[in-house]
Design a protein around this nucleic acid. Structure first.
Length: 554
RNA sequence: AGGGAUAUAGCCAAGCGGUAAGGCAGCGGGUUUUGAUCCCGUCAUUCAGAGGUUCAAAUCCUCUUAUCCCUGCCA
């Protein structure tokens, strides 16, 4: 794929910081919360953060933002690590966890208390909300706001020691209850939770909040450019307040970009989790999901995902990217790199009546039409083949460039045949087509100067293998499913079509999971990476070929 | 007594006072043993709108409009 280095406003800021000497080296981080699988929107953030580190000779940490043990799970940390690596990135040093810093964070909280910038508050949830005010109404100070430093120190100590119940009290920063930034109205920075944590076990019963944790974790790690999404723009004021009021050696800065929206899918972890929980899909890596794991299972390549991230760019504009951009990226990669093979999804029999009975041939076929380095393979041929049902019509107009009675067509990589007649079942469906072949047309056109206008794919009836093929399509019928209340209503009933009676050429026994093939004239497919029985041939369609015929025939 | 952001083609997106890049999609044509690929051509007299500054404005100023985000002990 093209090797142009992208430019965007964040890279421009970095260029300026480097030129001015504000920074001599660049340190970024990708900070997922392990509460679900990463989706393609995260891939955008990963490519941004790791890509910057790469291009500027800097470093990028992978840090799990694990301050909410009730929603997080170790399984998600494993999945996330795998996704980042699969995308082709390497994090600096060890994996980081915000929970690694709990002790330091605790000390910083004490520092705030000592500066009279934090206090233990006993307001309950409802009271807290009432005191907070609204967008148009200032909040009022908590009655606990003026507790003495000594008393606060002691109360916070008690919080840590588990002497208060969940929700009974919290530690709050003392900022400004009249601020127009809601997050500055004395935000909670620690809450009591008697929850087991996947990293720290039962060591803590108080957990720091995001706004307190994230900025300080950045500072501890020496992050120079802390990149996050637009919804945190207001939070930047709190980010700055915290690093300004606590003794950290460096003050990182936060920059926000717009998150990715993709047509016909969802990009909210919460909603994706609902699909999984409600069994509307078959897990986080169901190939219809927009998760990185699902794209991998579907046959997308890391390079295609990186190319996608590059093409969509990074700005502060709200955006919804069309699916066609993603599809163009994977087609471009796979067109160059996927070996070709033949598979018949909806088979009908083709009998070549003038082909010598019992004769079989091993035809040598190119694995790629233009890239000779991909070599050739053997495809068995005989007088009985399977072809695609839609590739035959008893009669058709000139636009139809396939097999028609009394018309010639090229069998891909093999001979030119002319259909003579066909058999049908009781319902009138064609079951067998009879034809004659021109012996001297292997690798050349008929000697009479005619040239068949069409080419169709086929497999040998006897030596082809049974396979299951799963055709995936968009999960939703509407471009913006997030805007509807009932997701089930807008799910695409044809998002998955399973074909259990496909026939594929024998070379496909060598297929490896996730390894792409182009099934000629149909699309790109790969062997599923979650096959229950070894030896089963289950192919997932990554994406179809561009199909101008579909437009013409409409 | 609200505040924070954003507006350039159908969708993304460059542009940073000197006369609208590129990609995807679309459209027209050519090559082709994949209706694929590839190749060629085409696709914004105008940058949310209205004023203003300037020899010159998508870029600077003013006002207006639209959209998104913020009132979790989530991140």
């Amino acid at each position: 794929m093209k090797e142009t280095i992208p430019t965007n406003f964040i890279r421009q800021i970095i260029d300026t910081d480097l030129a001015s000497g504000k920074h001599n080296s660049i340190q970024t981080r990708f900070p997922p919360e392990p509460n679900g699988f990463l989706h393609i929107g995260h891939a955008k953030a990963i490519c941004l953060n790791f890509g910057i580190a790469q291009d500027y000779n800097g470093l990028c940490n992978l840090r799990f933002d694990d301050t909410n043990p009730e929603k997080e799970d170790i399984d998600y940390v494993h999945a996330i690590k795998k996704d980042v690596q699969w995308l082709g990135f390497e994090w600096a040093g060890d994996i980081r966890y915000s929970s690694d810093y709990f002790e330091q964070l605790h000390d910083f909280a004490i520092e705030l208390i000592k500066k009279s910038l934090a206090f233990v508050c006993f307001l309950n949830g409802d009271e807290m909300r009432e005191y907070r005010g609204t967008l148009n109404k200032p909040g009022k100070n908590s009655p606990y706001r003026d507790t003495s430093i000594e008393e606060n120190l002691s109360l916070f100590e008690k919080m840590r020691n588990g002497e208060f119940k969940e929700g009974e009290c919290s530690l709050r920063a003392k900022i400004d209850m009249t601020s127009s930034f809601m997050c500055m109205r004395d935000p909670i920075i620690y809450r009591v939770r008697f929850a087991h944590h996947h990293q720290t076990g039962d060591k803590w019963c108080i957990y720091p909040m995001y706004d307190f944790t994230h900025c300080l974790s950045d500072a501890i790690e020496g992050i120079t450019h802390s990149i996050c999404t637009l919804e945190f723009q207001d939070n930047r004021r709190l980010y700055d307040w915290v690093v300004d009021n606590v003794s950290v050696p460096v003050k990182p800065h936060q920059y926000e970009f717009s998150r990715l929206n993709l047509e016909y899918t969802l990009m909210s972890k919460r909603k994706l989790n609902m699909l999984v929980e409600d069994k509307l899909v078959d897990g986080w890596d169901d190939p219809r999901m927009p998760t990185i794991a699902a794209f991998r299972r579907r046959g997308y390549t890391p390079a295609s995902m990186r190319e996608f991230a590059k093409r969509i760019g990074v700005t502060k504009m709200e955006n919804t990217v069309e699916m066609s951009v993603l599809e163009a990226c994977i087609r471009e990669d796979l067109n160059d790199n996927a070996p070709r093979a033949m598979a018949v999804l909806d088979p009908i029999k083709l009998v070549i009546e003038n082909y010598p009975e019992d004769k079989t041939e091993d035809l040598t076929v190119k694995n790629h039409p233009s890239d000779e380095s991909q070599g050739t393979r053997i495809v068995p041929f005989s007088g009985e083949l399977f072809i695609e049902a839609e590739d035959f019509r008893e009669e058709a107009n000139k636009k139809y460039k396939r097999l028609v009675i009394d018309k010639a067509v090229r069998l891909r990589g093999a001979y030119v045949v002319t259909a003579t007649r066909c058999d049908k079942d009781e319902q009138g469906n064609v079951t067998t087509v009879y034809c004659t072949y021109l012996e001297d047309t292997l690798g050349k056109n008929p000697t009479d100067g005619t040239k068949p206008k069409g080419v169709i794919h086929w497999v040998d009836a006897d030596k082809s293998l049974d396979a299951t093929v799963r055709l995936y399509d968009r999960l939703f019928t509407v471009p913006n499913p997030a805007a509807t209340d009932d997701l089930q209503q807008v799910m695409n009933p044809e998002s998955l079509v399973v074909i259990k009676t496909a026939k594929v050429e024998p070379s496909l026994t060598a297929a490896k999971p996730e390894q792409a093939y182009q099934f000629e004239r149909q699309g790109y497919f790969c062997l599923d990476n979650n096959i229950t029985k070894t030896g089963d041939l289950v192919f997932n369609r990554t994406v179809g070929l561009r199909d101008t015929w579909a437009k013409i025939s409409k």
